[in-house]
Amino acid sequence: MKPRIAFFDFASCEGCQLQVANLEETLLDVLRLVDVVSFREVMKEHADDYDIAVVEGSIARPMDEERIRAIRARAKLLIALGACAHLGGVQRLGNRWTPEQNKKAVYDGADGNDIGDNNPFFEKPRHRALDEVVKVDVVIPGCPVNRDELARVLVALLTGRRPPIPDYPLCVECKKKENVCLFTIGKVCMGPVTRAGCGAACPTYGNECEACRGFISHPHADAQIDVLRKHGLTPEEILSRQTLFTARHLEQQGKVS
């Protein structure tokens, strides 16, 4: 009996689920291994009994909390897919304001209309990672996830192994690719504290790593800050890099609220 797998999304751009479609021909191989019983984005059919739930997106409102709890109760294994589910996504940056302040900023000139007060879909949005609400079994990090990593994790789970997600910095992958290190050409990068597994995608194409995969479990954060300072970044500039995707880590360390 093939394991039954269901895909869900919450507050997200659906880019991670798109990576499933982007598996292209490999997707056809994956479909031989599992039974997709629910995947709203591509199919009408839906079943409530599944073994594995793959969830993208952050949890924003009470109705979302309810939905994820129901999913958690039904699934034997819950996989958080991507940065929104893992860390809260970029939208977590909005948490520094109240929902009212956010609404006002977006609906500027809305002029007294009841923006959301009567609309349950707007109830108290505040973005959280999945594991701030339910227990998560596996995290596939990244924004978006790397589709090869997604396939590898599935294969590992189906063959009784722990998901092969590295816990060493991006630098390892960059060096193995013989990339020109951005620090050696006057730029900066969050690679040294960020979890590898994406093949150092951004530095490979000349852009600094933005830590979308989250920090490694034991980052040398102070040393990284020192390096960024030596490269001329102000504390604000450093903070802007640390909070873009990884505000959650800083919150956990008590460095921001």
């Binding site: 063959t159 630098c171 060096k175 040393a223």
Partner: peptide, 29 residues
Amino acid sequence: ARCLGCGTCTLVCPTCFCYDVQDDINLDL
């Protein structure tokens, strides 16, 4: 104190030879 533990020094070194061995299974299981 300022070391990032990033592994760069050993990776780019011509006289470093340590390695790891890993197994991988394809999608055909």
